[in-house]
Amino acid sequence: MRKYIFKRILYLIVVFFIVSLLMYFLYNLIPSDPARNQLEALKSSLKPEVYQQMYADLRKQMGLDDPIIVRYARWMGLIPDLNGKFNGLLEGNFGFSEFFKKDVIDVVVEPMKTTIFINIFATIMALGITIPLGIYCAVHKGSKFDNFTQVFTIVGYSIPVYIIALIFIFLFAVILRWFPVSGMGTPGANYTGIRAMLDRLYYFALPLIVMTFGSLGGMTRYVRAAMIDALSMDHIKTARAKGVKEKTVIYSHAWRNALLPVVTLIISWFLGIFSGSVVIENTFNINGMGSLYIKGLNNHDYELALAMQMFYTVVSLVGALIMDLSYGLVDPRVHVDK
């Protein structure tokens, strides 16, 4: 087991470097010139020769004329930068955001908090609803309630999330006026503690409901299908013939087997906590990771976008490892020590 994890981490590092190299190359294909961006303001007030000289100096100073592989190594922190210090990704320097004029790490902190806050609530709500609902439908397969849920979930599954968002805004914010249309807090209010938290939840309620609702369909159907499969297995008959309570048959014997396919979904959901939904965040004007990423791309702030991309790379690599290890925990037939 330990050997396996060690081996997997080794692979993970190799993949990380390959992906980062590809990413760095790709982002360098985006036509943007940080040196020109800095000097653009001065261009009109300088003589062309002086400007050209300054531009060339700045490019040299920023290391933009070096071969791309050297720049990559510097960015990664594998070789010293122009000041002679190791100062790259591996040393914890995620770069400088040209657009926000701040270190990337400082730019990311707030949206990250927001996104995690929303996603934790949405995930718990979605799992809390879909798992019991899916199990109930599987156990009462073919009942009126099940048929209704099937229709309801296929509708929910088919409508894109931005349509759901608009419908819900119209319903709950415009007509019923239960929730604010958008935003992240009461403007001008200076709440602290619990009050601030409640205010936040009040503003996030609608996006949360939309996110949960959007994921209900697929997830419920998935849990239902997995549970129906598990309930139709031969050993369920054995369990019933043993005189075990129906509750134990469903929640212990069947659910443990249904969990095998469902666990993939659950874990990928928890990993998704870090990534913001671009559509939801933009619709509700929430400053989360999704909208930040779009902002970075729209403003040619490629150090910011690249750093975020690298973060997601690490999250998904570690996530895949956790997922594989969790199979071994849930299914005794899977051995994770080879």
Binding site: M233, K237, H253, R256
Partner: peptide, 14 residues
């Protein structure tokens, strides 16, 4: 009861 299919009559995860 004893059933026909020994391969599937026992719960694989217990």
């Amino acid at each position: 009861y004893i059933f026909q299919e020994p391969m599937t009559s026992l719960n694989p995860v217990f």
